[in-house]
Design a protein around this nucleic acid. Structure first.
Lengths: 161, 161
DNA sequence: CTTGATTGGTTTCAATCCGCAACCGATATC
DNA sequence: GATATCGGTTGCGGATTGAAACCAATCAAG
């Protein structure tokens, strides 16, 4: 019992584990996908995703607790509740897009719908990719894991926020 | 804006669900994170992640079935089996990095270790971000979902892929 | 005001999944 | 030959999930 909690505490030190603690459950990503595509209400999520109502209820609560969704009662119809993405939730977009593009490339084999476009040019966005500080796209052979303490902190290098 | 009736159909075509079918289970991402950080053997995954042996066995099998990991018997020691990332698995790096960066920013609040650097400059990589076709970084207000059929195929559109 | 529909849940119960510990077969090492 | 290592499997109890029924509050119609 204590071991489980203790272990979860240790895992929290890894950012991926910490992130998964918030959004790693079975339906969470799909709920977020729905939210990014304009769903707001319980019934919308339930009918479009086909998720069991109790699970949906539980997941929405958890996403709200984690500050990823915000529960907004409707002022004009007090039966209705809107679930809106917060800043924290909206910032998951790169995760969702990376996952989606991977699925397109390696599983479904075709582009998904709808498409995310640059509002100005109406052109689809680029595939998500790893880039060097100067903006060059980096392939697999260009990358290396190093310990933080071994970082070559050149003059003027400031760690990102 | 897209209407709700449309969403129902569109959400089914999204490949996020397909991707989650392969990597959406509880430990899959953490196993992959281990693999990206140089783990190869059953015992390594088990001891560093603290995952139950039967679950680890099951997840490794599933990742192999999905072509994300490859099971490679060791030629010099026939007890050992290496689990190596395939091309398909390696291509999940943007997903892992996006998730990690989100966790750093919104949960753990501090940079993780180790750090992925450009092998040449030894500088850490950029945060993953959404970019326009011409390379501009796009913020939230610059983006819009559109139906594939409504894509602005500029004049001179040559049979799109 | 009464009736019925809508919204957002909760309850109940069976099936599944997970974590833990113990065990096991095939090797390698001493 | 004895022992350790590696990569699993098995059995068990508790947690999680899914399907369906039920429910309270609110709104809309008559």
């Amino acid at each position: 019992m204590l071991d489980i909690e203790h272990h979860r505490e240790l895992l929290r030190q890894c950012s991926i584990a910490a992130a998964l603690e918030a959004v790693g459950e079975r339906w969470s990503f799909l709920i977020l996908r729905g939210a990014f595509n304009g769903l707001h209400h319980f019934e919308e999520f339930q009918s479009t995703l086909g998720i069991a109502r109790n699970i949906l209820s539980n997941r929405l609560c958890r996403l709200v607790e984690h500050g990823i969704l915000e529960r907004v009662p409707d002022a004009t119809d007090r039966r209705k509740v809107a679930y809106d993405l917060t800043e924290k939730g909206l910032d998951l977009l790169p995760v969702l897009l990376s996952l989606r593009q991977w699925g397109e490339r390696w599983i479904s084999g075709r582009p998904s719908n709808p498409v995310l476009v640059d509002r100005v040019t109406r052109q689809p966005i680029q595939p998500m990719m790893v880039r060097a500080a100067d903006g060059r796209a980096l392939g697999r052979g260009d990358l290396e894991w190093v310990d933080r303490s071994d970082l070559a902190d050149d003059a003027g290098s400031i760690s990102p926020a």
